[in-house]
Design a protein around this nucleic acid. Structure first.
Lengths: 351, 351
DNA sequence: ATGAAAGCGCTAACAT
DNA sequence: ATGTTAGCGCTTTCAT
C-alpha cells in the first residue's frame, strides 16, 4: 500500500541498478517467469492479485514499458489506425485544407478516446492501388480511415474488395463498394443555391474546382436549383483552395460578363477569400452580392459579415467513422452513412 | 524482362494460387532462401541484379508486402516519428487550435518527405512524466516531436535527460534542457505593443490566457514595451482559445474601465474574434480601436480589414524540427533554435 | 497460479 | 551471391 523505500523490494539479490529493458529482465528481478510478467502487466485475471501488484510496482520503479513492436508482432493486432489524406488532384501537394485538418483533429480525439493510436500518411495517388495498399498491406495498422476520396473512388473500391476495415470520408454514390461517411453534397449545393435565389439573387456563380467528386456534386446540386428556378449559373473553377487563390477570384470578378449577384462557394475558405476581394472592390455584402460558404468551420461565424454557409457535421462524422472502423475491425458489417447538410443563414445573404 | 503470363513463373512446381503472406512463402515460390528475398526487396546491392528483379516482380505479382512490425522489431528502427500534442492547460481536451493544426500539417509534409511515418498522439499531462514516456518508451517511434510545451517544460526536461531524440515546438528559456524550436515570443509581444503605441494607441489590453509559457512570454514582452512608453496595459485572460470565446471578449469590452484603443492578442484566432465583436458593437477598426494578431495564419490576410499580426515562421519551423530530429536520431548533437518574429502591418492598425 | 517452450515475420551475422 | 542460423521482445498455448 505504501511506497516504502526505493531500494529493497525484498524479492531478490540483484542490486537496484540493473537495467530493466525487457520482460525477461523484469522477470529476473521479480523472481518469476517472463510469462507471468506479461500476464501481470496486461492485467490478466489469471495471475495472483498480489504478485500482479508487485510486478506492476516493479515495472513502475524501473520505468519499464513493454516493447510495442514485439507485442504487436506476436499478438497480431497493432492498436493503430492509419489515417490517409489522398492528395490526388491537388496542385500543391501539401496538407493545408482547413476542413481536412479540422476533421483530422476530431478523428484524433475520437481515436484516442477509443484507445487507438493514429498513424498519419499523406499519399500521392499514382493511378495504381499502390499508394493505399502500401498502408493496408503493411501490417502496421488494424484499419484505415481516408480523409477524402480525391478522384480515387474506383481505386479505393478495388482495395476495399479485399481489405475490409476501410472507411472513407467523402461522397457516396450508388454502386460504390467502399464504406463512406459524408455529407449529401448535391443536397448541400442545392440548399445553397435555393437560399440565394429565395433571397433575390438572379445571376449565380459557383466557385470551386470540381476535380474532387464532392465538389462536383455540390455544383450539380446548385445547377439543378438554378435550372429549376430559371436562373443562370456560371461555374468558375478555382484551383488551389488555399489562401493564395486571390488572383483567380479577382479574374472571375473582372470578367465582363461577371455581374453575379449570388455566389455559391465550394468551401468557407473560398467564401472568405471572395468576401475579402469584394470588400476591397467596394462591393456591399449582402447588398450588392450575396455569398454562401460550405463546411461551417468555426471561423465562419467570425467573418464580417458573418458567413451564411452550408454546415457539414464534422465532429459527428468523425465519431461515425471511428465507430464504423471499430465495428469492421471486430468483423461486423457496416454500411455507408450520408448525413444531411444544414443551411446556416447568417449575414452574407439577405435572410 | 517481359511480363509473360500470370501463371508460369518457371521456377517451381507450386501452383499459381498459393498464398504468399511471408518472406518464406515468397522464397519458396522463387526457389531461393528467405534471406535473399529480404535482401532483394530491400534493394540491397549484394544480390544478383537479375534475381532481384525477378523477386521484386514476383512480390508485385502476388501483392506481397513484408510485415513492418516484424521488420521494425528485428531491425530496431521503426521509421516512425511520434508527434505529440500536450493538452495540458487546455480546458476542452480536444485538438482544435488552428495554429497547432497548421504546424501539424507542415510536419506531416516534412516527415513524409524525409521518409518517416507519423504517429499522432494527443496527450493529457497528469503531473508525471508518464504521458510522454508512454510514447518515448514504447519502442514504437524513433523520435518524438512535441507540438507545444503547454505548462510541462520541467517534465519535458526530465524526460529529455534520458531520451535524446526529442524536439519541442515552443518557448526557449535559459537553462532548459530539451531542444526547442520556436519563436522569440517575448520579442513578438514587444513588437506588437510597440507597433500599437507608435500608431497612437494609449490604452492597451492583452487578450490571452497565460497558462502556456509561450503566451506568458508574449505578455511579458508587451508589458515591457508598454512600461517603457509609459502606457497602461491590462491583461485579459481568455480561456478557451476557440471560436466560442466570444462571451469572454464581450465581457472584457463591457467592463467600465475598458476604454482600450489598442489590443495585443495571443493569436490570430482571438484577434478575429475580437474583430468580430467590435464590428458588432459598431466600433471602427482601426479608427477607434487597433488590433494586432499573432501567428500570421493564412487566414489573417482574409479578415476585414486584413489583420496586422506578428508572424511566426511555421513552415520553416517544421522544417527545422524535422532536420533536428533526424540528426538526433543519427546520434548527432543539436541545439535549440529561436526564430525572430516579424510584424506584418496590415489594416487593423493605422500603419 | 505459474513455468517452459514455441513462435509472430523479419533481418543480419556468419558461412560458403 | 546466396543459404543457414540465430535472434529482435513479446504472447500464448501447454504443462504442471
Amino acid at each position: 500500500m505504501d511506497d516504502s523505500s526505493k531500494d529493497t523490494t525484498g524479492t531478490d539479490a540483484t542490486g537496484p541498478d540493473v537495467e530493466v529493458r525487457t520482460l525477461a529482465d523484469l522477470a529476473r528481478v521479480a523472481g518469476v517467469s517472463a510469462g507471468t510478467v506479461s500476464r501481470a502487466l496486461a492485467g490478466k485475471s489469471l495471475v495472483n492479485a498480489e504478485t500482479r501488484e508487485r510486478i506492476q510496482a516493479l515495472a513502475r520503479q524501473y520505468g519499464f514499458r513493454p516493447n510495442q513492436m514485439a507485442s504487436k508482432l506476436r499478438s497480431r493486432r497493432t492498436g493503430v489506425i492509419g489515417v490517409v489524406i489522398p492528395l490526388g488532384h491537388e496542385k500543391r501537394q501539401t496538407i493545408s485544407d482547413p476542413f481536412f485538418l479540422t476533421l483530422l483533429g476530431h478523428l484524433a480525439d475520437q481515436l484516442t478516446e477509443a484507445g487507438y493510436d493514429l498513424m498519419l500518411s499523406r499519399a500521392l495517388p499514382d493511378g495504381t492501388t499502390d499508394w493505399l495498399e502500401r498502408i493496408t498491406g503493411s501490417g502496421m495498422v488494424d484499419g484505415v480511415l481516408l480523409i477524402g476520396q480525391s478522384d480515387q473512388s474506383e481505386i479505393i473500391d478495388k482495395v476495399a474488395a479485399h481489405y475490409r476495415p476501410l472507411v472513407a470520408w467523402g461522397n457516396h454514390r450508388e454502386g460504390q463498394k467502399h464504406i463512406v461517411v459524408g455529407t449529401d453534397n448535391e443536397l448541400g449545393g442545392r440548399l445553397a443555391a435555393e437560399h440565394l435565389i429565395s433571397c433575390g439573387a438572379r445571376n449565380l456563380a459557383f466557385f470551386g474546382d470540381t476535380a474532387g467528386i464532392e465538389i462536383a456534386m455540390r455544383l450539380r446540386g446548385a445547377r439543378a436549383a438554378a435550372e429549376a428556378a430559371g436562373v443562370p449559373l456560371t461555374h468558375v473553377p478555382i484551383k488551389l483552395a488555399d489562401a493564395e487563390m486571390g488572383p483567380q477570384i479577382e479574374a472571375a470578378f473582372a470578367a465582363t460578363s461577371a455581374n453575379y449577384d449570388g455566389i455559391v462557394t465550394a468551401s468557407d475558405l473560398i467564401a472568405m477569400s471572395a468576401l475579402h476581394i469584394l470588400h476591397e472592390r467596394g462591393r456591399r455584402i449582402p447588398g450588392d452580392i450575396q455569398i454562401v460558404g460550405f463546411d461551417d468551420l468555426p471561423l465562419a461565424r467570425l467573418t464580417s459579415p458573418p458567413l451564411t454557409t452550408v454546415r457539414q457535421e464534422i465532429a459527428q462524422g468523425a465519431r461515425v467513422m471511428v465507430d464504423k472502423i471499430r465495428a469492421l475491425i471486430e468483423g461486423e458489417t457496416r454500411h455507408s452513412k450520408v448525413m444531411p447538410p444544414t443551411l446556416i443563414a447568417r449575414e452574407t445573404t439577405r435572410s
